[in-house]
Design a protein around this nucleic acid. Structure first.
Lengths: 210, 210
DNA sequence: TAGATTGTTAATCGATTAACAATC
DNA sequence: TAGATTGTTAATCGATTAACAATC
């Protein structure tokens, strides 16, 4: 079992997918599964699954395979789905609203606790059961509620400024939807840039090159 | 210059990012750039940039570097931003609406030409300037308009069925936002699964393991 | 016990980086 | 021409796959 900091990005990216598939198996009532069976379901190799899991510990049993419920729970723990990290949404436009209502935060170790938008017309209205606040409240809100994660659904021009500001207010993780590659120079800050436009473009590339 | 089919997925995934950065440089009025300069901007190595570009052709000039406008245009052509692939959106819930309004399809070689939702209450209302249609119209619409790309913003239970149906109606590319790993067995169909929940989960993992 | 399947080491494969001759 | 920087080949690195002894 390796130190958590030493796990490669490739492995980490696969963990949520393992978690999802095991959740489905659990619902289907499957009790145990071999790496071979899981591999064919997920279109991976059995080797890769065993390698990946053994980064975190020996969850299986020779001659038997893996207990679905146990493995699901272990991976959940590794991912931290049992945690409740406070999250704030910056920008309540179309995309921000959709993220707020569409994402199940509680099953991902998060809780959305605040929504902010600079548009005066939006301030005071509600999304996902939360009142939209003015950015002027950001500082006092963060001081009081100590959110650790910020979701950025704002235009690219303001992204770096707002992110720098949020770092000072204690934000440690950015889920960035702006059309800007955010990179924070401070240590101990993590960033996940989501570029939906890039995703579409790789798809059209592949479509045009079939 | 290699055959387009032989380009590795790693390279293809980086192309939209090159295109974006070159677009910014172009706006900034930068005329030429060396692989070294571009590398430091994008936090890549100069070697990687030159390797990537040379999959498609020798776009640079020794002793000079790359012409920003020319390279931007070349990568745009490779990605097919000059094309106009017809796209339909299936599912006009929160996320579907946000995708329809938020994504700039025309700069990604696409045009959104139809929106479908099974919810009777939504049919007839408009999103992004398009009337939402009933799925009953799907067949005649596809026959007439020949869309090649479908955006799936529907629950996971119906995803595989609808995708199979759409394949029969001539859809060749799926941009899949449902919580289901779509895989199509037919040849010459491309799928891009977008799992926003997985993206959040890798972020919280990294946050919890700082 | 015998059979099955893991955990883990070794081999392979592919992607990234480094080096440098070609050349503008 | 001399300097700069590419295009491209070779070296390195990491990730995936295969193999197999350990063991349930």
């Amino acid at each position: 079992m390796a130190k958590s900091g030493s796990i490669s990005a490739s492995v980490i990216k696969r963990l949520p997918r393992y978690y999802r598939f095991l959740g489905v198996l659990l619902k289907e009532g499957v009790e145990r599964i071999s790496s071979q069976e899981l591999a064919s379901r997920m279109k991976l190799t059995a080797s890769q699954i065993r390698q990946d899991l053994n980064c975190f510990g020996g969850f299986g049993q020779q001659g038997y395979g893996y207990n679905v419920e146990g493995l699901h729970e272990e991976i959940g723990k590794i991912l931290g789905v049992d945690k409740t990290v406070g999250a704030i949404l910056i920008g309540a436009g179309n995309l921000g609203k959709a993220i707020a209502t569409h994402i199940n935060f509680s099953t991902r170790g998060c809780k959305l606790i605040g929504i902010f938008d600079a548009d005066e017309k939006l301030v005071g209205t509600s999304v996902a059961g939360l009142a939209i606040r003015s950015p002027l409240e950001l500082q006092s809100f963060c001081a009081a509620e100590k959110p650790k994660l910020a979701i950025l659904c704002i235009p690219k021009t303001s992204t770096q400024d707002i992110a720098d500001q949020l770092v000072k207010l204690g934000i440690k993780a950015f889920w960035n939807y702006s059309h800007y590659d955010l990179s924070i120079d401070h240590e101990n800050i993590v960033v996940e840039n989501v570029h939906l436009g890039d995703s579409l473009l790789t798809l059209t590339y592949r479509l045009n090159n079939l």
